[in-house]
Design a protein around this nucleic acid. Sequence first.
DNA 1: TTAATATGATACTTTTTGGTATCATTATGA
DNA 2: TCATAATGATACCAAAAAGTATCATATTAA
Lengths: 109, 109
Amino acid sequence: MNLGPQQTFRALADPTRRQILMFLKKDSMTLGEIAGHFDMTRAAVKKHLVMLEDGLLITSRAEGRERIHKLQPAGLKSAIEWLGYFDQFWDERLASLKTAIESETGEQE
Amino acid sequence: MNLGPQQTFRALADPTRRQILMFLKKDSMTLGEIAGHFDMTRAAVKKHLVMLEDGLLITSRAEGRERIHKLQPAGLKSAIEWLGYFDQFWDERLASLKTAIESETGEQE
DNA sequence: TTAATATGATACTTTTTGGTATCATTATGA
DNA sequence: TCATAATGATACCAAAAAGTATCATATTAA
């Protein structure tokens, strides 16, 4: 079922597409709304949206004549999983988390 | 100093390059050794190595007439950082870590 | 020294990507 | 109804990416 992280990594490789993900993090949007944030045609933005859907990073549903595009962060899972093979860079993030959890459990008990 | 994750994401978008990173995770290698694992010319592999260096994912040092390529996992930092803006997918990974840390601190105190 | 080896560099080809322009389709609102 | 608005689809173009072929350079080993 999971065909690996290829489409996901490819979708993430373009700055416009990453920007779109950031926008969709705040709110779901129509094609027109998304295109309004960029200096390119709707057709170009549409193609980016298709690649983001291929990468399982967004979903969309028709609503009348509009189509609402929504972030699907779970699609990042395969990429994150692949990155997980390289344990080292998790250190910093995990270190701060460890501190947070330890102080938290300290207060609770 | 940090020019953002663009080069890193781009480097990660190709399956051959991700495969190279997996190889280098086990051991540093020369161009010839790496190329030996792929069905393409050395020149092609060389180009992939250049892109991996651009993405700060590997470093290399000349050693006689050979050049040793070494994984530089810290280069993934900017990409991981960007992915960090989407907190949700960390849940699963972080949940298991939380369990591990809590039981650990429980035993210590 | 000199032949072999490993890499570097460059020119060229093909495919993919990112983009525009254009037309078709569908839904909406006056 | 019918003009308009939103999206879908397709053909086309330019630039980047992925790869080959070839030649140059530098190091090693006989």
